[in-house]
């Protein structure tokens, strides 16, 4: 079980939670969660839309700056980036050899091309820039705030409802899972890659689902007793103030400028 889920809603990722309004704060923490989501989207869209390496590298530089401003804990962040990078590494290794173009290096029958290498580097820059910006801007708010901000940004009410309930019960279900795993250990079960091991995990997860559904029935009944009709009231103190206007204006302008310059340079 993921250690970082133990305090769902507080700080899942080992990152310090930065909330606007409630605990004040400066820099990124002073911005409204909606602004942070929009900025992350703008940066991601710009980095993905740009095709030149310069624009993508600039995006990554901005993302690194954001991560420092958000004071992301270094080790958990690097670990997350590394998890991304395993996929990227596989691409970087394969792409130069599978893209035809100017030969760069020859290994027996394999020829690496400059174009392929450029493409691989572009993917690496984009993937890391987006993840870093997401972790810095959105990963530092608690999940409930994320739900409220999404609702205020116009996400479907029912989707937000599901998100809030999921977040609420992640920790509960996680503890249920750990309890069952402990019980299996107490009966001398050791997880191995055998038919017996897989079937046992299947039974474990089947039972987890059964218990979850029974819990859901109790929860739904209790919620109905309290007048639930498919909508939880969202009580928050989101405030969209002057710093948000400035940050959004600057962020969006930079994103548009970067993509525009990138297109001009490519043309």
């Amino acid at each position: 079980m993921h250690k970082s889920l133990e305090h769902a809603g507080v700080s899942w990722t080992g990152q310090p939670v930065r909330r606007a309004g409630r605990d004040g704060g400066r820099g990124i923490a002073a911005l409204d969660p909606r602004t942070r989501i929009m900025l992350a989207l703008a940066l991601a869209a710009a980095v993905v839309a740009a095709s030149g390496l310069a624009a993508k590298a600039a995006g990554l530089a901005v993302a690194v700056g954001l991560a420092r401003a958000a004071r992301l804990a270094r080790r958990p962040t690097l670990k997350r980036l590394l998890a991304v990078d395993l996929f990227v590494v596989a691409m970087v290794v394969m792409l130069p050899f599978t893209t035809p173009g100017t030969p760069l290096l020859t290994l027996g029958p394999l020829v690496a091309s400059v174009e392929g290498l450029v493409h691989a580097v572009a993917i690496g820059l984009t993937a890391n820039a987006v993840v870093l910006a997401l972790l810095a801007l959105v990963g530092t708010m608690d999940a409930v705030t994320l739900g409220h901000a999404l609702a205020r940004l116009g996400a479907p009410a029912r989707l937000v409802e599901i998100l809030m309930i999921t977040v609420r019960y992640l920790d509960v279900i996680g503890r249920e899972y750990r309890r069952m795993r402990t019980a299996m250990k107490a009966r001398a079960f050791r997880l191995a890659g055998t038919l017996h091991g897989w079937r046992s995990i299947g039974y474990l997860l089947g039972m987890l689902l059964v218990r979850s559904l029974e819990r859901a029935e109790r929860v739904a009944a209790a919620m109905k007793c309290r007048g639930y009709r498919g909508r939880l009231p969202l009580i928050d103190r989101l405030r969209f103030g002057p710093p948000d206007r400035v940050a959004l204006a600057v962020g969006l302008t930079l994103a548009v400028l970067a993509v525009g310059l990138d297109r001009l340079a490519g043309a």
Binding site: R158, R168, V172, I173, L208, S212, R215
Partner: peptide, 17 residues
């Protein structure tokens, strides 16, 4: 609407899984 809690809690279980 009644079954949103169910979808949410099952979604949490699949997340854990």
């Amino acid at each position: 609407g009644d079954r949103l809690p169910e979808v949410g809690i099952l979604s949490a279980s699949f997340f854990v899984a």
